[in-house]
């Protein structure tokens, strides 16, 4: 009914080796999506590969009624996605980012393909007149995505690469200096778990709130199968529960997550 649709693919691009951008015509989704939400995409019309792939919404164009997905080709399923004229998608699913009040000091940290949902957020921040500092981290220069577009939105970008091929030689969390972090109102991030864990530790020390977009192997996407479990805190300091990335997230408060 309302959340599953066959969407025509209107554009497909290999933007860098291993990274694809797909645009689909889905006006309802384009109008109702929030940054941080995702689509659950069927990648085969046979039974193999079987499961849908959760892919975050990269950007929307409400006038054209299109939704763009930027994703890393991680395996057979994602490799097939660019083969079709039409994609069966469910969404928008999950809870997205909450935008900060105007004039907030905001840091956005993206690790690799983690920029995918954050770019949509950066667009919204621009629309609200907010300027963010954006730290992009990747293994090497070839995995840094969207720098030019982020600059065009009016945000300032700093880069770190593991191999030093661009920007700071080291981890993106290493360029988060205490003075800088302590002056922030909000940190948004998406990236590999070790990066997010390190960032959570830094912002906790300076009492800065964070909205972290998490990933976990997912089944249904609607909270039915309970597969995409994420360890989170309850009211009691000694206790934890398993929340679910698809319906409780993918965006969680950094302080809510048990980072192990």
């Amino acid at each position: 009914m309302k959340l599953m649709t066959a969407a025509k693919v209107t554009n497909r691009k290999h933007i860098m080796p291993g990274y694809n951008l797909l645009r689909v015509h889905a006006p309802d989704i384009a109008h109702s999506s929030q940054p941080g939400q995702f689509l659950h995409v069927l990648c085969s019309d046979t039974l193999d590969p079987l499961l849908r792939r959760p892919i975050s919404i990269h950007t929307v164009d409400k006038d054209r009624g299109t939704v763009s997905l930027l994703y890393r080709v991680a395996g057979r399923g994602t490799a097939m996605l660019s083969d079709y004229e039409q994609l069966n998608i469910m969404g928008p699913l999950g809870n997205g980012f909450t935008l900060p009040p105007a004039n907030s000091k905001v840091l956005v940290v993206a690790g690799g393909i983690g920029i995918a949902p954050l770019y949509f957020l950066l667009q919204k921040l621009s629309e609200n007149g907010s300027v963010a500092d954006v730290f992009l981290g990747a293994s090497s220069a070839g995995h840094l995505l969207r720098i030019k577009d982020i600059n065009e939105l009016g945000h300032s970008v700093q880069v770190a690469t593991d191999d030093g091929s661009s920007g700071y030689h080291g981890r993106v969390t290493d360029i988060c200096s205490p003075d800088f972090i302590s002056g922030l109102d909000m940190v948004y991030t998406c990236g590999p778990r070790p990066m997010m864990r390190a960032l959570a530790k830094i912002i906790k020390k300076h009492n800065v709130p964070g909205q972290f977009s998490l990933e976990e192997r997912m089944g249904c996407g609607v909270g039915a199968c309970l597969a995409c479990a994420c360890k989170t805190r309850t009211g009691h300091p000694e206790e934890f529960t398993y929340s679910h990335v698809c319906v409780d997230g993918p965006v969680f408060s950094a302080s809510e997550v048990v980072w192990e």
Binding site: R217, K231, Y242
Partner: peptide, 23 residues
């Protein structure tokens, strides 16, 4: 019940393995 630690699901040829643990 809290259920099992993740990952709780993995795709296999024409199937899935799950270990939710009765959450």
């Amino acid at each position: 019940r809290k259920g099992n630690p993740p990952p709780r699901i993995i795709e296999t040829p024409c199937g899935i393995l799950n270990a939710i643990g009765l959450q």
